Amino acid sequence: MKMNPWTLSVLLLLAGPLGADPDWHVEYPDSFCVVEGSTATIPCSFTHPTVHKRTGAVVERVERVVWCPDHPICHLTTPNVYDSSTVRANSRFLYLGDLVRNCTLKIIKTEKQDAATYRFRFETNGGGFAGKKGVRVNVTNGEDVKVRSSVTDHVVKEGGQVTLTCTSACSFHQLDVHWYRNGHALSEKGHALHLSSLTNNNTGDYTCSLDSSGLKTSAPWSLVVGEDEGRYARRVAVPVVSVVLAVFFLLLAGLVFAKRRHAQKKASEVIQKQEVDCKQEAVGASEEVSYSTVHFKRNSSRSAPGPEHEIVYSEVVH
């Protein structure tokens, strides 16, 4: 039975060098879920031998890599989303790999029509090979995006930790996930957000989105960081003790001041009493001196006229 040359070439390409040498290989997941509007990364790796066993040619380098949708071999003019031999401007399909081992593909802002089975093909100076298994990319609307927490209670003690995970019908392992707190974008990326050494600054409503525009945003998950009771007690005790000590020292200072005032007042009263006593003693002494003087004068005045009266009297009698 004769076979069409084109059909034969297709079969040979499908079989590829893999039929002769298992070192020709492309590895990627069987299927991949992408949320519409999000950016996803499809992991991929490839290997090839250094010598082509069937032809004996030395495989020195990879000369071309191609990603194509819904085609078994990505050969020749097959429509593709990436071709290293063609310059593609403003493409949503970005090749993150190289010409050595990595064949990772990134899909930016996925659309519904991007759902397909994608295959990778690489061509060397010794032959070409396509990973015929391919990876099925499914595109969903992402309406069921949710935030799940590693703790059941929304209140976490200060200094504790919590992990928030963005979940949906798709696996988020390779999706670009953006996180927000109270509507403000956080620097952290990825499907899981790890928060440790929590403080009151971590309190807020957390949401996740599958694109930077925030169109596919989850419902908020509220986190409240409660202050540690021991730390709160210590924080309260310090000012209380300070106030008690301040009041004690004020009372002590007031008591010392009052005693000093009392001692000064008492000393002043003693001095005043001494001054009064001294004045009274001085007045008493002055009165005694005056009295004796007057008495002395009275005695002299009475004795002076005595002889005169006697003389007169004697004259009359005679």
Rank of each mutant, 00 (worst) to 15 (best):
Q161T: 07
E123N: 01
S168G: 12
R92Y: 07
R54T: 11
V276I: 08
C68A: 06
L11P: 00
L251Y: 08
S149T: 10
E229A: 10
V240M: 02
V135E: 11
V224D: 03
S187K: 15
D70A: 00
N138S: 04
L175A: 06
G56E: 07
K297L: 01
R64T: 05
R119F: 01
I73E: 14
L13C: 13
L251M: 08
T165C: 06
C68F: 01
V51I: 06
P5T: 13
D153N: 07
P22S: 03
K146V: 10
S303E: 12
V283G: 01
Q113N: 08
T41V: 12
V66G: 00
L18M: 10
K216E: 00
E287K: 14
L255Y: 15
V177M: 09
S209P: 10
V240N: 00
L215M: 15
L11V: 03
T50K: 09
Q174W: 09
K189L: 14
A89K: 11
K259D: 06
R64E: 06
F172M: 07
T199Q: 13
G214S: 01
N141P: 01
E308L: 02
E288F: 02
K109M: 15
P69W: 02
R88D: 06
S212H: 12
C208H: 00
H184N: 06
L14Q: 14
V145D: 14
Q272S: 15
V58M: 03
S209Q: 12
I42E: 00
G128Y: 07
I73N: 13
K109L: 07
N200G: 14
L76Q: 00
R260L: 13
G127S: 13
V225R: 00
S314T: 06
A237D: 07
T41D: 04
D144S: 05
E269T: 06
V247Y: 04
G97E: 01
H262D: 12
G254T: 02
A246L: 05
L210F: 12
S197M: 04
H191P: 11
F248T: 15
N299I: 12
E281L: 08
N125D: 08
G226Q: 11
P79E: 02
R234T: 12
G142P: 03
V317K: 12
S171E: 09
C68K: 15
S149C: 01
G37Q: 04
H48R: 15
V241A: 13
P220V: 11
L14T: 10
P307D: 02
V316S: 10
T39Y: 08
Q264E: 10
G134P: 03
D228S: 03
S314G: 07
S303M: 13
